[in-house]
């Protein structure tokens, strides 16, 4: 029997706070926010668990990369989110380590008429520091710094703007965001 605890105890209020953290991080690339309230089974981080609880439900399709495709995580997601699990190509959301999510070329990047029909990747990281990338673009006053799993993939993603996928990076109870609009260079 798997442990199905660890959801939001007060869903409306906790999801509201978690969403604001998600909104702030995606709107201000480089900024790290704390995301609390979820206690999912390892290796799913509390921050990634909170993103799932806040944004994922029966209405969206989720892809679990091999790093997170485990029975206890599947059960937890089935119970708390109810999202159908799908292949990378069909996913609205994807969860996993950066390595496990490869190749990221499989994920939806939207269409010229509907660029919003693109995947959101929840990338589990060892750490969100120290920074290795310089960021510029919407949400950033002059420039900002962030820890990214690599540089080239995000530079390529920016080059397709307004198409492209969007990312949340999670580690422990921390989250940062990187929308497709951000220009990325190595520090």
């Amino acid at each position: 029997m798997s442990d199905l605890s660890g959801g939001f105890a007060h869903a409306p209020e906790q999801a509201a706070r978690a969403f604001r953290a998600c909104l702030e991080t995606l709107a201000r690339p480089g900024q790290v926010q704390r995301l609390e309230g979820a206690a999912p089974p390892a290796p799913l981080s509390p921050a990634a668990g909170a993103v799932l609880l806040t944004l994922v439900d029966q209405a969206v399709r989720l892809h679990l990369a091999p790093s997170h495709d485990r029975p206890e995580i599947r059960d937890w997601i089935a119970f708390h989110c109810g999202a159908p699990l799908v292949a990378a190509e069909e996913a609205d959301f994807a969860l996993g380590s950066w390595e496990a999510l490869q190749p990221v070329g499989r994920f939806a990047i939207g269409t010229p008429a509907y660029p919003d029909r693109a995947a959101t990747l929840i990338v589990e990281m060892e750490t969100l520091a120290p920074p290795n990338a310089r960021l510029t673009g919407p949400g950033i006053a002059r420039d900002a710094e962030a820890r990214l799993p690599e540089i080239a993939a995000f530079a390529d993603n920016r080059a397709r703007f307004p198409l492209g996928f969007d990312c949340f990076f999670t580690s422990g109870d921390r989250v940062s965001g990187l929308p497709r609009s951000t220009k990325v260079e190595a520090l």
């Binding site: 969403f19 998600c22 909104l23 995606l26 944004l55 660029p115 919003d116 919407p138 969007d166």
Partner: peptide
Amino acid sequence: RRALLKGIAVP
């Protein structure tokens, strides 16, 4: 919320 985040991603 999902729509808002996509809106932020594509200003």
